[in-house]
Design a protein around this nucleic acid. Structure first.
Lengths: 345, 345
DNA sequence: CTGTTAGCGCATTCAC
DNA sequence: GTGAATGCGCTAACAG
């Protein structure tokens, strides 16, 4: 139980050593499988360690050795966003192979908080940082203050600093989706997106615009909306587009909230409109409205980020910044995603 | 940028002290706002700290002071489960007020892994552990090995150990849902649940059974299924119930997967059946099938767990184990949950 | 008010 | 192969 009798001091290396009549160095060597110790001695030590239930203190170890803390910081706005949650899983998976764990740093999308979180994680001696940046200015993620701690940006390219990053193929995915709509005969395609100031807002719109251009379709501003709002606003916007004199026959939505809004608008109004959207939606197969989505694996973003982190450590620190793009696939009438994969709930 | 020129040693307290011609203690006192230092000196120190960009090393601090590491471990099966993700948010929120961050420990539902994760987190000197246990045997979460590290169980009661815990009102929530079905005139109510070996499986079934009993309705085993499967299996099971000679007029589902399966079965077959389920479902308002859900706030579980952790630290370590129950509410035709609440995606 | 001594738990470096 | 000294960065405890 967590409630102990006495202060119950932690067992230290010295306790093990004294009991065996050896020095702490011998214990240390045995524990870490280092050479310079007899096989017999090693066994004796390990036995005593098990008997006493001794556990090395990793903080002290990394302090003395100057080695890695085996802690990697993950800075995101909000884990409730399944993208981040799944990114975290991928990150943890790869970090674990290196013996490292992930420390959470939620920012709530606040740039000032992000700075604090980064500073705090650095004080904790993390070996690296994976950041999904909230703003456009990334200067706090570079320069002196980081003291050699590698940083990998996720889902957005570095701005104002040099750093490795992992991106989703926002452009290619959106273009593919738009192409498919065009291939199915649509020429008036509405776009519900995000502000151009956001990377995803800019790239996904570019995918839309390029696909249109490649097909020789002129971009009609009446069919374009780029704002940062909730799904209610998206629904409103979609509805407004669908009652134009010459309404679009298809809607391309650049993110989840817009997709949900568009779905509602279409369903409520019963418009004969094709839908395609970036990002998967749960239970999409159960909706009455057929939907094509641009799908990708957020965990892969996390895995790639971790890989970059560790590769950077191997390489000369000053090597060229690398950029990894995670691919997307187009999915029709998407099948349900298994979201809850343990059976406790 | 993360690529520096030289080894660029970290700035230490000594660097600050030497530059100012004072001792490291003076710097330490200034930094921690401790008394026993002149206001003027403090300002000089703080200025130099800022100038050098000095950051205290928290690992060294907690090592020397024997104080808290300000790290709390979260042990769950899988963050992709939104329950755990939101629990993590609540936990982080409260921990942050105490200056602590959350370290992730995913187990994948594997008991052996859970043991390792707990051991590893202890080696890292976490101040506390919040665990959503995978199995029935919690002995590895108690006893000597924990060395005074408080543990709080979440979503399941301690078994074989004494520990604080936070539970969801599985029983009450399910009973309320079942009562509502009964109040609406249903008497043949099917139940799709989890194995009795699981806490949630047992408690939620109890809620169902008690509600029936209170209404004087006999429990009919043909209407009861309790297995651990995916939503496809649940769909199959629901369908089988609905084609009975005397089919249920309502289905009560004890968790997400069963709810989804039931929804599919009902939708596909067009059966005139009422549905009620434990746990919220996204986009439930967009489905054609009306649904009542037992809703609760997973973040509250995290918050409560953190609170217990810190209260335990204040209290005598040997105080009585506490148990907090998080309330549930019944929601009809649930409104959409805002899942992605930042605007980057 | 400030500095000195000592040491947290462990590992590097060098003796032996 | 093993042990002693030394110090990682920081802070109690006591000195001045």
């Amino acid at each position: 139980m967590s409630a102990q009798q006495g202060p119950e001091q932690a067992v230290t290396m010295r306790d093990v050593a004294e009991r065996l009549g050896v020095s702490t160095m011998t214990v240390s060597r045995a524990l870490r499988g280092r050479p310079g110790i007899g096989e017999e001695t090693r066994q004796r030590v390990l036995a005593e360690v098990a008997a006493l239930g001794y556990r090395p203190n990793k903080q002290a170890r990394s302090l003395r050795s100057g080695g890695p803390s085996e802690l990697v910081g993950l800075v995101v706005t909000n884990l409730a966003n399944p993208f981040y949650a799944r990114l975290a899983i991928g990150l943890e998976e790869v970090c674990l192979r290196q013996g490292a764990r992930v420390v959470l740093g939620s920012t709530g999308g606040d740039q000032a908080v992000e700075r604090e979180v980064v500073a705090d994680l650095l004080e904790r001696g993390v070996d690296g940082l994976v950041v999904v940046p909230s703003g456009h200015d990334h200067s706090h993620l570079g320069g002196e203050q980081l003291r050699d701690t590698p940083v990998v940006l996720a889902a957005g390219p570095p701005m104002g600093i040099e750093a490795d990053c992992v991106l989703v193929d926002d452009f290619g995915g959106t273009r593919a989706a738009c192409r498919q709509l065009i291939a199915r005969g649509h020429r008036r395609i509405g776009f519900l997106g995000l502000p151009p100031s956001l990377w995803t807002g800019s790239e996904r719109f570019r995918g839309y615009a390029v696909a249109l251009e490649e097909a020789g379709i002129a971009l009609d501003e009446r069919y374009v909306s780029r704002h940062r709002g909730d799904s209610a606003l998206a629904e409103e916007t979609a509805r407004a587009m669908l009652v134009l004199p010459d309404p679009p026959t298809a809607l391309l939505t650049a993110n989840n909230r817009n997709t949900v809004g568009a779905l509602r608008a279409v369903r409520a109004g019963g418009y004969p409109v094709a839908l395609a959207g970036f990002d998967d939606i749960e239970l999409a197969d159960m909706l009455d409205v057929p939907l094509t989505v641009v799908s990708y694996d957020p965990a892969e973003v996390g895995r790639a980020a971790a890989a970059l982190l560790y590769e950077r450590r191997e390489a000369a620190a000053a090597a060229q910044p690398r950029r990894v793009i995670v691919a997307t696939t187009l999915v029709d009438h998407p099948r349900p995603r298994q979201v809850r994969d343990d059976s406790s709930f």
